[in-house]
Amino acid sequence: MAAGGSIDALSQFKLEPVLGLDFTQSNVMMIVAGVLTFGLLWLGMRPRAMVPGRLQSAAEMAYETVLGMCTETIGPEGRAFFPFVFTLFFFILFGNLLGVFPFFFTYTSHIAVTLALTVFVVGLVTVVAIRIHGWHFLSYFVPQGVPGALLPLLVPIEILSYLSRLISLSVRLFANMMAGHVMLEVFGAFVVMLGAAGVIFWIPAGFSLAVNVALIGFELLVATLQAYVFAILTCIYLHDAVHLH
């Protein structure tokens, strides 16, 4: 943390091999997130009760929330994408939430991971659009009710905005997670450095600690919100692909 007087806020993102392979702690956390997601549903639904208990209620609520997200945003066709959106949402949600625990690695704070997810989402959206609409899909880039003279200007903008989803979706998640974790690290280091600097600095150290407590709560909000944003934007893009405009 506080090495030689400077704050090392970034080494928490450093990948370390586990088991001596190219398998990293990032992938370990992915497996933990996957096990938690699967476990929530599998153990939650084991009673198969007519009147659900707590864990079963949680599992059913997770199912119905994501299903509602799909069918309300995409339409009746959304049921086909429900398993994918569910996997995506909980993969990101548990990745974000696990990262709030001290010493746990946050794989959603890696642009490579969020970009890979985004590339898959945009690729899926494009494939779905082409399979449903064929070449008519290209009309998506032609805004309706616009004079023809403006089209040479607007079509490239539309294509650009379509491609910029790759950046906006991946960077939004990555930057939110990274910024939160950097701030936690910085204020944590403040507490240690100020606390060690002398009694006089204990007041600002206490303030830093209070900020960190607030930040943890804030991080929980951001973790959930960003997972939701990622999933709902995926649904909106899929809606565009299914319905074109």
């Binding site: 990948l15 370390e16 190219d22 990293t24 990032s26 992938n27 996957g34 996997t87 890696h110 997810l117």
Partner: peptide, 14 residues
Amino acid sequence: PLTLSQVWWGALIF
């Protein structure tokens, strides 16, 4: 190499 290898493993896990 770990930066990209986590993505391949991640894709498999996903």
